Simulated scan of single mutants.
Amino acid sequence: MIKEMSERKGQLYVVATPIGNPKDITLRAVEVLQNVQAIICEEHRIGSTLLKKLGIQKEIIVLNEHNEAEKAPDVARRILMGESMALISDCGTPVFADPGASLIAHLAEWEVPVTPIPGPSSLMAALSVLDFRLERFHYAGFLPRDKTERRNTLRGLRNLRVPIVVMDTPYRLMQVLDDVASVFGGNARITLCLDLTLPGETIFRGKIDEVQHKIKEKKSEFILIIH
C-alpha cells in the first residue's frame, strides 16, 4: 500500500513568515501559499489572519505541541497520497523551536520531498547586527521556566567561549536578565534585540547591568546574546 501511495506522493513546503513586519514575507513564500492545497499552522487564528492579509483562502490544518504526535501521521499520509501542503509557524522560520519535526520525520521516512522556503528568522536577524565578527555561536534556545533550573542551565553555559543565544517569552525578559546577571556577573557583555522588525525595534549593547537599568520593567519579544 505504501509503495502504491508513494508513486503519487505530494510535497511539503516549510515556509518562513514575518516575525513582525508583514512586508517581510517573500514573493516565493506568497506563491507557494497560493498554490498548495492546504496550509499547516500552529494556531488557526494566527494562520487565518496571515492568509486573509495575503488574500489567500485555503484549508487550514492545526498542528501544534498538543496534537502533533497524534495528527502528524494522518497529515503525512495525505501528502504521501498526492497533496501539496505548506507548513508555517506563528512567525518566523518553522520547526526551529516550533512544531513540525514529527511530520517531517514521517515524510523523510517515506522519501516525500520537503522543501524549505527561507525568509524571516529572529535568530539570524539578531546575529546579523552584532558589532563584532561572529565565527561560532551556541544556541541555548528557550530556558527552563523554573528559576532554579534556569540558573542551573546558565551555569552549565558559563564556561563556553563563544557567544550564547538565549530566547524566552516576553513576560520573562526581566527574570532572564536577572538570572544571567547573577550567573555571569553584571559586567557580562550582551546584545539584546527587542521587537525586531516592528516599529518599536530596539537593540541594546553593553554590560548587562547597564542594559537592565535602561529597559527597567519592559516586556518585549526578545533575542539575548551573551558574549
Rank of each mutant, 00 (worst) to 15 (best):
P120C: 11
R136M: 01
K23L: 09
E201P: 06
P18H: 04
T202C: 11
V32K: 07
I39M: 06
L143R: 03
S48A: 14
G119H: 05
L127F: 02
G156Q: 09
M167E: 07
C41R: 01
Y139T: 08
N21R: 10
D168K: 02
L192T: 03
F132H: 10
L33P: 03
K3I: 11
G100D: 03
P113D: 13
P18A: 08
F142C: 10
V183H: 07
L192P: 01
I190W: 09
A140P: 09
L134V: 00
I223T: 13
Q212Y: 01
M85T: 04
L54C: 06
V36S: 02
S182C: 09
R77Q: 14
P118W: 02
A72E: 04
S122W: 08
V30P: 07
L224V: 01
M85S: 07
L50A: 04
L173T: 05
V32S: 05
A29E: 10
Q175K: 15
L130D: 06
G156E: 11
G20P: 07
P199N: 09
G119F: 02
A29G: 11
N187C: 05
G141S: 08
S89L: 06
V211E: 12
S122G: 07
E68S: 06
Q175H: 12
K3Q: 15
I2C: 12
R45F: 01
I2V: 13
E210I: 09
I190H: 08
P99G: 07
V112K: 11
T26R: 06
N35K: 13
S121F: 01
R155L: 14
I61A: 04
E4T: 12
L196K: 05
E70D: 14
T49A: 14
Q57N: 14
H66G: 04
R77F: 10
P199G: 05
A108I: 06
T169D: 10
S89N: 07
V183R: 07
L51D: 10
Q175R: 14
L192N: 02
L196G: 00
I56V: 04
L87M: 08
M5E: 13
Q57P: 00
